[in-house]
Design a protein around this nucleic acid. Structure first.
Lengths: 167, 167
DNA sequence: TGCTATTGGTTGCCTGTGCAACGATTGAGG
DNA sequence: CCTCAATCGTTGCACAGGCAACCAATAGCA
């Protein structure tokens, strides 16, 4: 009772309503924002998502190793590796050996790489701002907090085998 | 001033801080929730994400065409087509011709398909609930509203060429 | 009735990426 | 010093999925 009309024909009351299902909605939203962004960094600068992330990280930190690009296993080692190779081939990134530990290599933007970074970054921020423009400052703060809480929780539920982990 | 230490060496103040960039955060969150869910429907039932969506949609609507599976271009025609083929081969879905328009076909779950649906759906909902368990009811409502606003806006910014559109 | 445009769905091709195995280097312990 | 385990990064393999060309069926229009 209270479930509305009882047994119209066969469907035993939908268990999952896809359009209301959080993981689905998050995937759709993330996909749409990626599409919006891709218009900038893919179509205009020929960057893939991993490449874009490498560029931004190097723009942010100046000097990093490939390992640092996937802090929490967001990107796979192999994905980073290939993105870096491609960027190196295009002359946007250089590798320099780390003499203290020759297993890893330092990565940095070349001048041309930084040029691109400085061109793309503001445009990307503009897209973000256009996205957020439908929210008030309070809503933005709430959004940020919600994303953080959910991300923390999702990390607990997701399989841990994304490389070693804690400690 | 107020920006902290001024010019340590070269980096001209990071333009984009990846960890604070909304599209990035959304992608990470969506990826993690997908991983958490995949443990259920992939590892335990051998379903891909598209297959899972087809199953859920048919569990919800009982009778749909392949076209209906991608209401807003979230999934590609070809993706749906291949997912349906695979499910048909496994005997979880059947096709029946639509005599009114023989271009399209009706899709429905077989009894075995519905069995799986009824087994997977509650588990998927449980994962969703575990995710949401860190939020209060107020926060859940806020989240839902924020996702909807952002999705609507993102749809405006994303390239429209995902099939025809408006009208 | 014929002719063209549109739509639902399939398939070949190509790219991107996860996985696992590997080589190179380092660190720990006897 | 030597050996074994762990770590950074690369690469071959396989598969998923986007794109575009295509087929079949329908609709619009003369």
């Amino acid at each position: 009772m209270a479930t509305g009309s009882a047994a119209k024909k066969r469907p035993p009351d939908p268990l999952v309503v896809l359009e209301a299902f959080l993981p689905y909605r998050l995937n759709v939203l993330a996909g749409l924002t990626s599409s919006a962004l891709a218009q900038i960094y893919a179509e205009r600068y020929g960057l893939s998502i991993p490449a874009w992330r490498v560029i931004v990280t190097l723009g942010q930190y100046e000097l990093r190793t490939a390992r640092d690009m996937a802090p929490d296993g967001v990107m796979h080692k192999s994905t980073v590796s290939r993105a870096v190779s491609a960027l190196e081939k295009r002359g946007l990134v250089v590798r320099r050996p780390n003499l203290d530990d020759r297993r890893e290599e330092w990565l940095a933007l070349t001048p041309r790489g930084r040029e691109i970074y400085e061109a793309v970054a503001p445009e990307a921020l503009a897209v973000e701002e256009r996205l957020l423009s439908v929210l008030t400052s309070d809503e933005r703060r709430a959004l940020s907090s919600l994303i953080e809480k959910l991300t923390r929780q999702a990390r607990l539920l997701a399989p841990r085998d994304l490389e070693e982990g804690d400690a």
